[in-house]
Amino acid sequence: MGAPDEFAVDVPLLRKIAHSVDEVGKSVDGAVGKRTATLTLADGRDAGWSAADALRSGATVWETFLSGLHTRICGLGAQLSEAADRYEQADADAARRHRMRGD
């Protein structure tokens, strides 16, 4: 994330957005965590079925993908949250400098 730029940043709104993104990321993670067991078939009466084999290997591929998607979305939420922190800190620093100069 680069340095704060010249445009006005709405820090509370940015923090709210970061929170929303993080919630979405968690919901994707929840989807994986809750569903993984049933996305595929329990070992049992499906010997010989190509569809069962395809589902088992396919579910693994999907789990990897969803896990990565969860990481990317939560990472985005963290990026936004860090940006909000930095802008908040920059605002606080600017205010302190003004006070020291006696503006």
Binding site: M1, G2, A3, P4, D5, E6, F7, A8, V9, D10, L13, L14, K16, I17, L76, Q79, L80, A83
Partner: peptide
């Protein structure tokens, strides 16, 4: 875009 207007710093996000 309103909370963090698009610019050099926000482009990646």
């Amino acid at each position: 875009p309103n909370a963090w207007p698009e610019g050099t710093a926000s482009q990646g996000a």
